[in-house]
Design a protein around this nucleic acid. Structure first.
Lengths: 172, 172
DNA sequence: CGGCAAGACTGCGAAATCCGCAAGTCTCAG
DNA sequence: CTGAGACTTGCGGATTTCGCAGTCTTGCCG
């Protein structure tokens, strides 16, 4: 029963993503497979996962726990912001003068900033904002964000319609 | 034990987000509380959730199942793309001529497009791309995306560093 | 007003799952 | 050769999940 996936494990182990990984502990094919299972259903029983990836229930349990502890993945509920009462969202591009990282930290501290990333290109920072209504959005963008020291200017892209949102990294 | 949250339920029920919701079934305070519990830990037992929100285990189970069925939330594993072997990410702004929605659909169909949203502002579309390496990224942006009929031009923002990524909608 | 169907919740066993633990195997590195 | 690390198998006990019957409330209708 543990043929395919397990068989390829040792070979898979020392192949790639060893050098410039970005910091994460490298994952082998089995852990990837476990993650894929949990991306389909975060509550899937360990035994079922084990059957799917070719591992015992106990081994799956250990691995999942480790992945969780290491922060490689987390098992959470994700929702559509609209149905939870947040009616306005926007992506905001930020031009920064001076230290980009400190500005990023300041934005990260705001609960309305759902997503903060440093970028190369005409913006130094891109930030996703989730708000309850227009007033809230206006307040966050024009008052809070622009008040952060180092923010030279911003450009906003209000969301009209969310077309796709996946959590299937590695599943393809 | 079921005082606070439950007591406010009927009052909470017909207050807001009734009119322009965007389509989702309105959520009462209890469902919100359940979601918050599962945002902290997607595998938290129903009994524990019930204790926290003031409901029986069976009731929580029903509500969670309904939320799942309705598509209001999903319980999944989320990972840091870096640790899963995707070393290049970018946000791409797209200028469209003609039907924006059809372009959006085309982009949605690409597995590398993790996130597709129609926006107001200088871009018609914003797309998040997740790739394995530079070649892959280049291919997706310059060949695949620009080949979509209706795409006039694009601007890319390569990710340098992801500072924040939350799934805590409603938890604040 | 009485009846009644629908929806939401509780309580309760039975089945399944989770969890820790021990012993034995296998492989790799020193 | 030896130790460390990862897996497997097996095993109980605690916990959780699950299905179902029964209760309560609400709104509808003759």
């Amino acid at each position: 029963m543990h043929s395919d996936v397990v068989a390829s494990r040792s070979a898979e182990h020392r192949d790639s993503r060893e050098s410039r990984n970005g910091g994460g502990p490298q994952l082998d094919a089995v852990s990837l497979a476990i993650i894929e299972q949990l991306q389909e259903d975060g509550r899937r029983p360990y035994a079922a996962i084990g059957k799917a990836v070719g591992l015992s229930e106990a081994a799956v349990r250990q691995r999942v726990q480790k992945l969780l502890d290491q922060g490689v993945m987390q098992i959470v509920a994700v929702t559509d912001p609209l149905t939870v009462g947040f009616r306005r969202q926007a992506m905001v591009g930020v031009h920064v003068e001076g230290d980009v990282e400190s500005v990023a930290d300041a934005l990260t501290a705001m609960s309305e900033c759902e997503y903060v990333v440093m970028t190369a290109g005409s913006f130094d920072l891109m930030v996703e904002i989730v708000c309850e209504d227009d007033d809230h959005l206006l307040d966050v963008i024009n008052r809070r964000i622009r008040a952060v020291p180092g923010v030279r200017s911003t450009e906003s892209f209000v969301y009209l319609k969310l077309k796709k949102q996946t959590y299937m990294w590695g599943t393809r």
